Simulated scan of single mutants.
Amino acid sequence: MTVLKPTSRPNDARFSCGPTKKRPGWELSALAAAPLGRTHRGGTPKARLAEAIERTGAILEIPDDYKVVITPASDTGAMEGAMWSMLGARGVDVLACDEFGGRWLIDARDELKPEGLTIHHAPYGQAPDYSKVDFKNDVVFTWNATAAGVRVTDGDWIKDDREGLTICDATSAAFAMGLPWDKLDVTTFSWQKCMGGEAQHGIAIFSPRARQRLREFRPSWPVPRLLQLFEAGEETAAIYEGSTINTPSLLCTEDYLDALKWAAKEGGVSALIARTQANFDALASWVEKTDWIDFLAQDPATRSTTSVTLKFSGKELEGKSEAERWAVSRRMGVLLDREEAAFDVIPHPKAPAGLRIWCGPTVDADDLVALGPWLDWAYQEALANPAD
């Protein structure tokens, strides 16, 4: 069956899984009030950083006894700061099912090497076996595996009477999925994911138990200054008021504030979760009626609603090698980019061939509805014309 080139494009073709699309209606003028050319240590700039911290906690509805800090180096800096500053007090369980969770696994296994390390690793498209976690240990895990399209369904598997800390990479989940704060001791994410902020800045949120660890424990390994979060153990630490570990970008801070203000106007985290679900539903409706594509995550309960990762399932590619399948992915990406119908929808390079489409809260569902016919067209074109 021949698929004609669609005549109607998405209003916004940005479906990248990070950095992601900015909030609807964003314009460069939103950053006009950024206090550029000033030190971040005092006056208006420091107040802006403190406001970013306050608004983050308010939008995410974190408990009053949890604390928020801004970290350097995006979610990577936040997660590695937590791991390097806090692990080593007891055994560690690390769960991973994609490239990014695999990075925390490598940090623990090959760099920190804590005693009593247990690894729970699952292949792309599958979730780790959470029932095997030992909560006498610290537990490091990813809420949403951005490169695999697999998410944690809920926090019921985390014990209330756990002895260790839970350290959660929530960078593709915060602001888009419900997070059970009572189950999370350290939660990290970046500005560039669900809120569409600029890159290189991260957030770490600490429970009282996590702050106690930071006060009372020092690991045996040296911790680079950039990863030192020990100050966050103090209840009145300046880091909670906008005194960052290193120099932040005030332009990026203004952009993050703009996104947080938009989130508040939308109705807070519940409204952002609802937007995300509507986006996922729009894309899922197309997947369900399309015979050449399917979700990489076969268990519907574990399918990400943000970084939706899809695999080829059509008979046209049966028996083809992974390299041949990837050639189709790349060709589709070129065609969609050329037509300005969709940008950045091929999967992470280490994931199986297919598509990866962002459905987070800054995307509009109408754009995902308009995207489906373009994907059908691009797939047909990629099969018929593998290269120009």
Rank of each mutant, 00 (worst) to 15 (best):
S207D: 01
T153W: 07
W221H: 15
A176H: 09
F141V: 00
D182Y: 15
D138Y: 00
Q212F: 01
G149R: 03
A237K: 12
L251M: 09
T188R: 09
F206H: 14
A204C: 10
V140Y: 00
T166Y: 07
A148I: 01
A238S: 09
Q200T: 12
D138Q: 08
L251T: 06
Q192A: 11
S243H: 10
F175W: 10
L229G: 09
S249E: 10
M177C: 11
G242F: 07
V223F: 07
E216S: 15
G178C: 05
T171P: 13
V186S: 02
A204H: 01
R215V: 06
S243M: 10
G155W: 09
L214G: 00
W191E: 03
G197D: 14
L226I: 15
W157C: 05
I205E: 06
W157A: 04
F189P: 02
A174E: 08
V150N: 08
W143T: 04
A170H: 03
V223Y: 07
R225C: 04
L250D: 04
A173W: 02
A170F: 01
M195V: 00
P224V: 05
T171C: 13
N144G: 13
R225G: 00
G196Y: 11
A147F: 04
V150Y: 04
S243C: 11
D255S: 02
P222Y: 04
W157G: 02
G149A: 06
G196E: 08
W181C: 15
T247C: 01
F217I: 05
N246A: 02
G197W: 07
A238D: 10
T153L: 05
D182M: 11
A148P: 14
R218Q: 14
A210C: 06
P219R: 15
R215H: 02
A237Y: 14
I167C: 05
R215I: 05
Q228I: 04
I245F: 01
L227N: 15
L165N: 08
W221K: 13
G197Y: 07
G202I: 01
L179R: 00
T187A: 00
W143F: 02
V150F: 08
T153I: 09
S190L: 01
F141C: 10
Q228W: 14
H201F: 08
E216D: 15
E216N: 13
L184W: 04
T142M: 12
R213C: 15
R211W: 09
V152D: 12
L251Y: 15
